[in-house]
């Protein structure tokens, strides 16, 4: 178990190191003078802001320093939680913008990931080796998993929001409201959350159902399942054992799918103008706000790494074999 976690942590550490390095390197690969082109591309009107930014950039990149010093400095500011100042929302620090957006993104991501995983697995397990269910669940799942997140989101926003007018189609809460801990506001918040959540949930659902169905079929053909049915065990019991075994690869699958799920949430937020990281990234790209973009990138990488680690811990709890170091998930 020590070895297992050691290996995982090494990989995550290296990944984070790579992410920070890429983040540092890519602006320096940009052709031309990055400071000048950033200032030109940033749509900042006030001259004071322009000048402040120029000084700020030159200090921040420290282009007169040797490259290794620039690189070390970027790590230093990272550990101080300093992601720079946003151009788009000048003079708000990027870190503030990001921490304000993250709760909205998490509120979409965590419930949709967990619920789609649980429901999808149940559905897939039910469908396996049952003709009628299989013939309905499987095609629907394939359509769902092939749907681009942004398209289902757009369809739902159009159908439920514009045509039927049941749900709001933009924002995290009504513009007429100020955030407060009142029932009216919470209900409003929930109402705005429901559609983006539902579209994320539905697209993710298909993949889990397909995966679970396939693994369950594999498990039901394994020796222990055959042996149990030869002993006359009820089908229900065999299925329960098969499900418990099939959950393991699905947990690994969850870790592998995290990046895709996060990406789906980002574009879904954009469709609904939901005030999470996705909308921030869109604003950053449209306004050439590279600090904001880089900050968002590091936040996402860090979030995905933390989530990966949590899944590793869960895996160890669920699968006793990893604890005694016999077998288990490949590093």
């Amino acid at each position: 178990m020590r070895r297992y976690f050691g290996r995982k942590l090494l990989i995550y550490g290296l990944t984070f190191f790579m992410a920070v390095t890429v983040n540092w390197l890519v602006p320096r690969l940009m052709p031309g003078d990055p400071v000048a082109s950033m200032l030109a591309r940033a749509r900042v009107a006030q001259p004071e802001a322009q000048e402040a930014l120029r000084v700020y950039y030159n200090n921040l990149f420290g282009f007169d320093l040797p490259w290794w010093q620039q690189y070390l400095n970027s790590w230093g500011s990272l550990f101080r939680g300093d992601f720079g100042i946003s151009l788009w929302a000048f003079p708000t620090p990027v870190a503030d913008l990001l921490t304000r957006a993250v709760p909205y993104s998490l509120a979409l991501l965590i419930p949709s990931i967990l619920l789609s995983w649980v429901v999808g697995n149940r559905l897939g397990a039910l469908a396996a080796r049952r003709k009628v269910l299989d013939n309905t669940v499987l095609p629907v799942s394939y359509v769902l998993t092939a749907t681009p997140y942004l398209w289902l989101a757009a369809l739902m926003a159009w159908g439920f929001g514009v045509v039927w007018g049941i749900f709001p189609v933009a924002g995290g809460y009504s513009f007429s409201m100020t955030p407060s801990l009142t029932w009216a506001f919470l209900v409003d918040l929930f109402w705005h959350w429901l559609l983006p959540f539902a579209s994320l949930f539905l697209v993710a659902l298909g993949g889990w159902a397909i995966g679970m169905r396939n693994v369950i079929i594999y498990e039901l053909e394994s020796d222990y399942a055959n042996y149990m049915s030869a002993l006359g065990a009820p089908q229900k019991l065999i299925r329960r054992y098969a499900f418990r075994n099939a959950v393991l690869p699905q947990i690994t699958g969850l870790a592998l799918q995290l990046g895709v799920l996060v990406a789906g949430a980002l574009v879904t937020e954009i469709v609904f103008s939901y005030p999470g990281l996705g909308s921030l990234i869109l604003a950053a790209i449209q306004n050439k706000d590279f600090f904001l973009l880089q900050g968002a990138f590091l936040f996402i990488v860090l979030g995905v790494l933390i989530a990966n680690f949590i899944i590793d811990v869960v895996y160890v709890i669920v699968d006793p074999r990893t604890r005694v170091g016999m077998a288990g998930a490949a590093a």
Binding site: M18, L258, I285, V301
Partner: peptide, 20 residues
Amino acid sequence: TNIVLVLPTLAVLFILNAYI
């Protein structure tokens, strides 16, 4: 492989595409 596997692909692509 494992490093690139855990990196969120789309976020990397944002950075690459936006800068380059």
